[in-house]
């Protein structure tokens, strides 16, 4: 049909086109060069829970009021023998909360949060306001060695990237923590640890933690 040389040339072009397409498609799929900050709607607190009841109910007392746990700086690093041995079963975290505000697991703090836009693979910074639940006063001073810090995980085997996260206290009891990267869409858990370097050995230790569901689109 064609002279041999022309036929071979067309065949080469055909092979080349297919090969280039096979390279281009996966490259386009995997390149991830677009700026995630510009991509689509941002996430936020996850829907799905009775926010107020979950977030505050665990501190409700029998009489309908709240029962808060005062904290003491003296309990941060107690002398040996002054405190009970730590929990050993790894189950001392409370329920993860919906919404953007709630009491921490041990009813020591009221914790509320906002964030920069939450998108997959974008740097997200959280602003966390921590007040002493018993006095409604700011819980300040929790930045030494990033001891107020964040954990982020999609599930118990899928952590987020918090390795570069730093904590600063912009005003009394208001902590800026970031960057945090969520590398997959879904409902994540972020757990804020307050005064995390304090030994959690006695009930009035300043050490506290509260976790919230966060939706990453």
């Amino acid at each position: 049909m064609y002279p041999n040389s022309l036929g071979r040339a067309r065949a080469r072009l055909s092979y080349l086109s297919i090969a280039l397409a096979l390279i281009a498609v996966p490259l386009a799929a995997c390149s991830g060069t677009s700026d995630p900050a510009d991509a689509g709607p941002a996430g936020g607190p996850a829907d799905g829970g009775p926010a107020n009841a979950e977030a505050f109910g665990h501190c409700a007392g029998a009489d309908g009021g709240f029962v808060f746990q005062p904290v003491s700086a003296d309990a941060c690093h107690p002398d040996a023998g002054d405190a009970a041995p730590p929990d050993d079963d790894g189950s001392d975290f409370g329920a993860t909360l919906y919404g953007t505000s709630g009491y921490d697991d041990d009813c020591k703090y009221q914790v509320s949060w906002t964030s920069t836009p939450i998108r997959q693979n974008a740097d997200v910074t959280f602003t966390v306001t921590v007040k002493l639940a018993a006095t409604d006063q700011p819980a300040s001073g929790g930045t030494a060695n990033n001891d107020t810090y964040i954990e982020a995980f999609l599930n118990e085997t899928h952590p987020g990237d918090t390795a570069s996260a730093q904590t600063t206290e912009s005003s009394a009891g208001v902590y800026t923590i970031g960057p945090v990267r969520f590398d997959a869409p879904g409902v994540w858990t972020v757990r804020f640890h307050v005064f995390g370097d304090c030994e959690d050995l006695s009930e009035d230790s300043p050490h506290g933690h509260a976790a919230f569901y966060v939706d990453v689109p």
Binding site: P86, D92, P159, C198, E199, D200
Partner: peptide, 25 residues
Amino acid sequence: PAMGHGSSVVPTVTARGQGEYDLSN
């Protein structure tokens, strides 16, 4: 041990043979 708590994430263990086991996450 000092804090009395662990990590929220459980590491994944994979056996590689030759006595080697990898912990990821």
